[in-house]
C-alpha cells in the first residue's frame, strides 16, 4: 500500500508545476485591490488637508500657504485611509509596490497648482 502511495506522490511531483512562481522571470502576483503604493495627483487637490489630519501615522504634510503636499514613504503604511477620505480624487492606490529606498527621509514632494478658472487670481503663483 505504502509503495503505491509514494509512487503516486513521486509521479505527481515529477510532472506537476512548482507551487511557487518564478518571480523575477515572471511578474509577481497582484490583484486589483492590492494596496501597493499611494499616488497623488496635484491637479485634483483642493488643499483641504483631510489626508494630513486623518493619517494614522502622520506621514502626509500639506501646507496651505505654500500649496505643497509631501509624504514620507517610510512612515506611510499604505492603509488607504486618505484615499477613502479625499473629497476629490486626488489620491489613489496602485497595486504595484514601490521600489526600495536607501536614504532615510524618502519624501515625495508635490506642488499643487492653483486652479485656473474659478477663484479670481489670488496673486501668488504657487511655485516651489
Amino acid at each position: 500500500m505504502g509503495v503505491f502511495t509514494i509512487a503516486k506522490t513521486i509521479t505527481r511531483n515529477l510532472f506537476s508545476r512548482p507551487p511557487t512562481s518564478r518571480y523575477p522571470a515572471e511578474p509577481a502576483k497582484r490583484f486589483d485591490l492590492t494596496r501597493g503604493h499611494l499616488v497623488f495627483t496635484p491637479e485634483g487637490c483642493r488643499v483641504c488637508r483631510v489626508c494630513m489630519l486623518r493619517c494614522p501615522t502622520q506621514a502626509i504634510v500639506v501646507d496651505r500657504e505654500k500649496r505643497t503636499w509631501e509624504c514620507d514613504h517610510f512612515r506611510c503604511i499604505t492603509c488607504g485611509n486618505c484615499v477613502d477620505l479625499c473629497p476629490t480624487d486626488a489620491l489613489h492606490l496602485e497595486p504595484a509596490y514601490r521600489s526600495p529606498e536607501a536614504a532615510h527621509p524618502a519624501k515625495e514632494f508635490h506642488t499643487i497648482p492653483v486652479p485656473p478658472p474659478k477663484p479670481e487670481a489670488g496673486g501668488e503663483k504657487a511655485e516651489a
Binding site: 488637508r49 489630519l53 502622520q58 504634510v61 501646507d63
Partner: peptide, 12 residues
Amino acid sequence: GKEAQEKECLDR
C-alpha cells in the same frame, strides 16, 4: 485637541 494635533503635524 484638533488645533494641537494640526500644530503638531506642522511643527514636525
